[in-house]
Nucleic acid binder design. Structure first.
Length: 568
RNA sequence: GGCACCGUAGCUCAGCGGUAGAGCAGGGGAAUCAUAAUCCCUUGGUCGGCGGUUCAAAUCCGUCCGGUGCUACCA
């Protein structure tokens, strides 16, 4: 069996992420990882905080902390939050780790040795007020085209024209508003990406059938427009230092660009995982000469170029057999009520406040069932509440409730053993076989909206069966027949819990524990990958069951109104 | 400006060359075990506009309109 390596795009260190960030990388990666483990595959799910770059330095400044302390604190916050959402990382690392420093420097040395790097002098904006270089975006001024007064040095938000900081009228620092800025020459390392165009194109074409159109079109667009060499160093203090043995120390005091070291952190975090768990060199077997590994990357569409072009060039240029991505799953944006989620604008719902409203599983279900796979999707409170009330409360929750309550009322709260499965049951079993196979196939392809549609259809199948079996009617005249319906209902709950587990791990456990203890209190609820005739006849007669508390309480109209008012 | 993606029932979306589909919402009925939850039936669309290719187009091509994103120093 092939091993499965899964990485989620790294959340930036700068504050709590919003639900759009969650649904675009971390959540789908987690669901895929859980599915993979449920199928019994050896799985490694890696994520980390992306900690370098100007925004981190400025956020630390604003918080009155040194950047290392700031990042350490924010990392812990994001880690704890992720765990509350059930994100089952094997390791949640930090791009500022010593492991990433070493491996990033290793890649840079390889690229230098192989002649893929060169030193070029560039003109950079320097702010005397802050005594630091400023990225183009952090220089603001009046747009020469449209007169907008807060145009950024890379692009004018008002007229969308691409700019250079030197184009701006009355340029000033976006950080301090100081106009005391100047242009200085600065030497930087450039990665000669242009040398890799053909190699990249061949590689991308080889994944023509596997990658979604979104990823292919973005990747090819970069190649078609002519791949430019890319500066991979910055005039910052917080980052992976450029080693002195590259370019005779010309880059002394500079650090690698955050987008150079961030994807390498996927590898480095694997080493962090091994180091933390006494696994020695095992980390390397996942990345180096790892021909038995299928590697999946999950990311938002803004990240696609870095994963289809930038990082692959780093790996190809190293001349070493590091693992390239096999399957890319890219997501569009989830919008909030017709506009963007915005971290800086504090618009939308954030991971921490969302949990004040509803449990993680409810968010996991809604978000992934409405993931922006083929196009941007839109979060509205009415849609959110409508989907959860119908799917989780009415279809699934009520199913669990009606079956367990009836069993307790009429069969002493024990799995009834009387009677044998007949035509109704065989019809159900056949449909379950078909639907579970379909659900599995969608999960294999990481087609989450379709998978969740099928999961929901599976729950509906259960309700249809109960209507046909009608044990509440048969109990009056034929106790054995009623027993068959209840026994099948309880078996369905058991199977549902296993099928739900990748998506809603906590709710799945509640469902399972109502029907049957979990053997050895295992973390993973494995996939029922054998015929439903067996899976739906597993519970032992006499096994005591309980009716769980309401799985998901319906959201009242007044509650929706309150949330709308609170979040705008 | 360039490029990409999207525009299908009131809403959220699937279908992507062969007689228009799902879920929700709306209408009617059944059932009464259950969180008044379920189940069955059903009303909704000249598939953004125009033109073309084809025996056949929601599906391919062109063009226009509308929306979104990217455009390499935010990450």
């Amino acid at each position: 069996m092939n091993r499965v390596l899964i990485t989620s795009a790294l959340p930036y260190i700068n504050g709590v992420k919003h639900l759009g960030n969650l649904v675009g990388s971390m959540l789908p990666a987690d669901i895929f990882a859980r599915y993979s483990r449920a199928r019994g595959r050896e799985t490694l799910f890696i994520c980390a905080t992306d900690e370098h770059g100007t925004p981190a330095e400025l956020a630390a400044l604003e918080a009155g902390q040194d950047v290392a302390t700031y990042c350490a604190e924010q990392h812990e916050i994001q880690k704890a939050l992720g765990e509350r959402y059930g994100l089952s990382w094997d390791y949640f690392g930090r791009s500022s780790s010593i492991q990433n420093r070493e491996i990033t420097q290793h890649f840079a040395r390889q690229l230098w040795k192989n002649g893929h790097l060169e030193v070029r002098t560039t003109r950079q904006v320097y702010s005397n007020a802050e005594k630091r270089f400023l990225p183009d975006r952090y220089v603001i001024g009046t747009c020469p085209h449209c007169g907008y007064e807060r145009a950024r040095g890379d692009q004018c938000e008002n007229c969308t024209r691409v700019l250079d900081p030197t184009d701006l009228i009355n340029p000033r620092s976006a950080v301090s508003n100081s106009p005391d800025i100047e242009i200085r020459d600065s030497a930087h390392l450039f990665l000669k990406q242009s040398l890799f165009v053909e190699q990249l194109r061949t590689w991308i074409d080889s994944h023509d059938k596997e990658w979604p159109a979104l990823a292919l079109s973005i990747a090819r667009k970069w190649l078609d427009e002519g791949l430019k060499d890319r500066g991979i160093t910055r005039d910052l203090e917080w980052g992976v230092p450029v080693p002195d043995d590259i370019a005779d120390g010309q880059l002394k005091g500079k650090v690698f660009y955050v987008w150079f070291d961030a994807p390498i952190e996927y590898i480095a975090a694997t080493k962090e995982w091994a180091d933390a768990n006494g696994k020695g060199n095992i980390w390397k077997s996942w990345w180096h000469d790892a021909n038995d590994v299928t590697y999946w990357e999950f990311m938002g569409k803004d990240n696609v170029p870095f994963h289809t072009v930038g990082f692959p060039v780093t790996i190809m240029g190293s001349g070493e057999p590091w693992k390239l991505v096999d399957r890319i799953k890219g997501f569009n944006w989830m919008n909030y009520d017709g506009g963007k989620f915005s971290t800086s604008g504090k618009r939308g719902v954030f991971m921490d406040t969302a949990l004040e409203l509803l449990p993680a599983d409810a968010w996991r279900y809604y978000l992934i069932a409405n993931a922006p796979e083929s196009a941007d999707s839109n979060f509205t409170w009415d849609h959110f509440a409508g989907v959860l009330n119908k799917d989780l409360a009415d279809v699934l929750g009520n199913f669990v409730n009606r079956v367990t309550k009836f069993c307790i009322a009429r069969f002493d709260g024990k799995v009834p053993g009387e009677g044998v499965y007949g035509e109704d049951e065989n019809t159900l079993i056949a449909e379950m076989d078909r639907r579970v196979a379909q659900y599995a196939e969608f999960m294999e392809q990481a087609e989450f909206r379709k998978a969740l549609g099928e999961l929901r259809a599976i729950w509906v199948t259960g309700n249809e069966y109960m209507t046909r079996a009608a044990p509440w009617t048969h109990i009056k005249t034929d106790r054995d027949k009623a027993a068959v319906g209840v026994r099948m209902g309880l078996n369905l709950i058991h199977v549902f819990s296993h099928l739900c587990w990748p998506v809603m791990p906590s709710m799945a456990r509640v469902m399972h524990l109502a029907i049957q203890p979990i053997a050895d209190n295992a973390e993973v609820l494995p996939w029922p990958d054998y015929p439903m005739a067996k899976a739906l006849d597993e519970l032992e007669a006499g096994q005591p069951i309980t009716a769980p508390d309401v799985l998901f309480a319906k959201i009242a109209d007044e509650q929706i109104a309150e949330w709308k008012a609170r979040f705008g």
